[in-house]
Nucleic acid binder design. Structure first.
Lengths: 301, 301
DNA sequence: GCAATCTATAGCATAATTCTATGGAGGTGA
DNA sequence: TCACCTCCATAGAATTATGCTATAGATTGC
């Protein structure tokens, strides 16, 4: 497009400011009063009204003997009030969204035990915010984040993910989970590798952490049973199928099981609040991450 | 108000342009497409959307992996479409007003015989325009114009009125109106002054013209009967009460009456289209005055 | 008639808008 | 894999819009 074509565009598009001046002039009964109402100077309103009349191609207000609507002005007034009313509603809606008095947030979680206190804090602080959750393993949640299916996720990571905003909440170590009948106080990496092992599917962070630990020590852990959820792993251990591993904070309150430390160098991972960087511009996400960090700190002390 | 207070006003009022960009971006599925739709450059739309998000205090559109509405964006879209829809209606209404496809005009008239062809021309050219008329004498119509009770008036004047837009349509002379039985071919001013005269009320232009003519010749016309309308004058003359005067173009088609010239220097007045100067900014008035001049010219040839 | 009030114009400063040019990120085909 | 294409974001510059102060003309009221 050339500069000339730009200059030649129709002059006098009707602006919201002009409609506000017009409505205020009618309401106040004079241009001066309208300026007062709007917090503008009288000449500003005067010029704006003149411009509005030129844009409309017709006189809208008789100034003499007193302010009086013309026929077109009457038409315009009704419609201007509709536009301005809708606009006010729109701005109020956005204000509510910003203050989390409306709207919703989708939260992904791989470790409900860590995530739920955060979610509880969010819901307590903003009762009118609708919260949806989605359970998944770390890899699945990262995909859901990329696809914008969830706005933020509480998940386990060994280190922050490139291209994502990752806020560390707590650091946790892996522990072994054995049947309550097994009389041991600790278990070595070699014993774990010897199995029988009950582990989660690929994509799970506990699985990845175990395999990395085995590889670092030249071991190759053979997996007796691969399960798709923590619940299945728990039942498998309770049934005596093998030994499983979980994060410290995820230890089950189950009479049939016992948590025992893994001997040697601790296998550590972090629980993170993860989001797309741009998603931090969502007030709900920003607030949720903040509250999550608070909740983690409170739990740590 | 100080300059600082002005500078400090809340930044980021939501503009119509921003809403248009937003709606177009959603509709087009990309920022570039939105720019195309709106006839703007891509960066313009990009920064406008960023500004809208800052004004709303929240992210509205996920840009990756493809354009997707956030929760607040969904809310905003529905309301933005309402605002823009109302705005479109408003602009269409103003367009119709400008083109006289809607609206109304109030026309005053003191001489229906001259005004009706003008009104007929207006109604033929703009069938959707509602026309209201109001009959009155010259003085009454001038007051109605000042009070904005009529937008324009067709009336008789001896000369243009100060502070009013006066467009001369035709020049007419006064003629006498006598019973058909009276066998005269003309009548002198002295004979008229001798009466018996039937004249209109003060405020009527024919009355003022007659009195001015009498005064100019040192005569004092005695009024036998004062009437409030042309119809009353006609019946009075037919009943033999006296002689009346009318403008040339107002001569009655009545078997009982005869129009005869007034001898001597002609007593002339003009038929004018009169309006407040500002009322010429009303398309209906401007068009009506133009059509009236045309109609007068056509009648003259 | 004169003061008071209201509207309109002129001139100027600041803010907003919009462009072109350019950089960087994500996906596609040889 | 690398080049290429598309898309979005940023930077800088020019133009337009907005809003103010100061002031003049008009109208109303005592």
């Amino acid at each position: 497009m050339t500069n000339d074509a730009r200059r030649g565009r129709r002059e006098g598009a009707i602006s919201l400011a002009a409609l506000r001046c017009f409505a205020a002039a009618v309401e106040g009964g004079s241009v001066s009063r309208a300026a007062e109402i709007l917090g503008l100077s009288q000449p500003t309103v005067s010029v704006t009204l003149t411009g509005l009349e030129r844009a409309c191609g017709t006189l809208l207000l008789h100034r003499r003997p007193r302010l009086a609507l013309t026929d077109a002005g009457q038409d315009l007034l009704a419609r201007a009030r509709l536009v301005l009313g809708r606009m006010d509603e729109l701005e109020e809606t956005m204000r509510q969204s910003r203050d989390l008095r409306r709207g919703s947030i989708a939260i992904g979680l791989s470790t409900p035990a860590h995530a739920m206190p955060c979610i509880a804090a969010l819901m307590a602080a903003h009762p009118e915010l609708r919260v949806r959750t989605r359970l998944g393993n770390t890899n699945g949640l990262l995909e859901a984040l990329s696809a914008c299916e969830v706005e933020v996720a509480i998940m386990t990571l060994t280190k922050p993910v490139e291209g994502m905003s990752c806020t560390l909440l707590v650091t946790q170590r892996l522990i072994a989970c054995v049947p309550a009948s097994a009389p041991r106080a600790g278990i070595s990496l070699e014993d774990l590798a010897a199995g029988p092992l009950v582990l989660r599917e690929p994509g799970s962070m506990t699985r990845a952490m175990m395999e990395a630990a085995f590889a670092a020590h030249g071991l190759s852990g053979r997996i007796a049973l691969e399960v798709g959820s923590r619940e299945a792993a728990r039942e498998a251990v309770a049934a005596g199928i093998g030994i499983s591993v979980v994060l410290d904070g995820e230890a089950w309150q189950d009479q049939r099981l016992r948590a025992v430390p893994i001997l040697g160098e601790p296998i550590e991972g972090g629980v993170y609040a993860v989001a797309l960087p741009e998603s931090l511009d969502l007030p709900a996400v920003r607030v949720f991450v903040g509250l999550s960090a608070d909740a983690a700190n409170r739990a740590a002390t």
